[in-house]
Design a protein around this nucleic acid. Sequence first.
DNA 1: CAAGGTGGTGAACGTTGTTCATAGAACGGG
DNA 2: CCCGTTCTATGAACAACGTTCACCACCTTG
Lengths: 210, 210
Amino acid sequence: MTATEARRAEVRAALIGAAEAAIAAHGLPGLRARDLAKTVGCALGAIYTAFPDLDALIQRVNLRTLAAFEGALGPEDRLAPLPDAGAATGELVRIGLAYLDFARANPLRWRALFQHQPQDGAPPPDWYLVEQARLFRFIEAPLRVLRPDLSPAACALLSRTLFSATHGIVILGLDARLMPLSHDVVRQQLETLIRAMAAGLSAADPGDAA
Amino acid sequence: MTATEARRAEVRAALIGAAEAAIAAHGLPGLRARDLAKTVGCALGAIYTAFPDLDALIQRVNLRTLAAFEGALGPEDRLAPLPDAGAATGELVRIGLAYLDFARANPLRWRALFQHQPQDGAPPPDWYLVEQARLFRFIEAPLRVLRPDLSPAACALLSRTLFSATHGIVILGLDARLMPLSHDVVRQQLETLIRAMAAGLSAADPGDAA
DNA sequence: CAAGGTGGTGAACGTTGTTCATAGAACGGG
DNA sequence: CCCGTTCTATGAACAACGTTCACCACCTTG
């Protein structure tokens, strides 16, 4: 039994790797079941013994992308409390720029995180939300320094807002359809945005973000 | 000659209308060539006499969506110069909230604006960029009041940044995958963001946005 | 070693967008 | 008014997709 299970696990891992390579090379439309089977060296139907469908496989790839970004964010000790508001603002800027850099370095894998939406309309699995929450801790840590008065729920909410604004800059800044922007210009715009928000948050009426 | 041209134009208009309805009802994947032909009452191949492919048809629908949003922004005289910085900030907030409201009211048509990317990799046609530029004038007008020192190019760039941040809030705020947020919470977060950026812009070193 | 069940196989299915030989309508000159 | 020409709409056919399923081989077990 363990022999067949090991083979299944091996095929699963190989499929995830091949899918990641296909997405990194040609984007989400570059993920084709027949190509996967060919590169992995298994039958077409074998894919569906390892995963219910290609959507589940994409989710696995997306999880790895999130984990790769977490690695790019730096070691775990970045979550240690920061000394003052200035350091906290700097940390937020650092995270935002790391997000931009990661998106630029891995454009297709990063786009797949948002481009993909399961046609089933089903919510993402728990292990996916867990990884999301892990990443948001990196934003919430400096946020707690800037706004120690916020409840954990309000802090979580505000971190989503900060991330959303950053994400907007990155996703449209890397999209040549809207405007051709150089790397440096996007960097500067992003830094300006984050510093403006951090400044606004420190000075804000605590009731604002409730 | 005019008779056949009139018929062609009629079919074109009917196809755009049917495509818009299909996208509004079931999103971009709900646009199927055979369904279109059936609802319009023409043959399958007739679609390809009116448009080179379905991508071109989607672009026509997206143009109508942009025009509908422009209508929702209010009359043209909104572009008149504003008296002071406070009024300009209020106008930016109003535009941002209008964007949010439009996205909420027409979720699938609005998503199609960004979800769609032509596989050809070709740049969008000129008439599409023209409509985009028309919309950005609504942001640039109040921006000129807040930062009269900016060159037109810097103003255009800054308006893109402002829009991008707003867009990030809206697109992730309406997406239940990230966090289930109520309408009012998203509204408040968006208003906070825009006011923080407007305040940061007024106070900023003019060199920041060059 | 024979019998039974489990799991991989790849041909086949149902849907896509797009094309193309063909039938038919529109037009112009006799 | 009619026939020859040209151009257009038609829908069956094509290629490619994700997914399924009857089959066959292998492994486990008595």
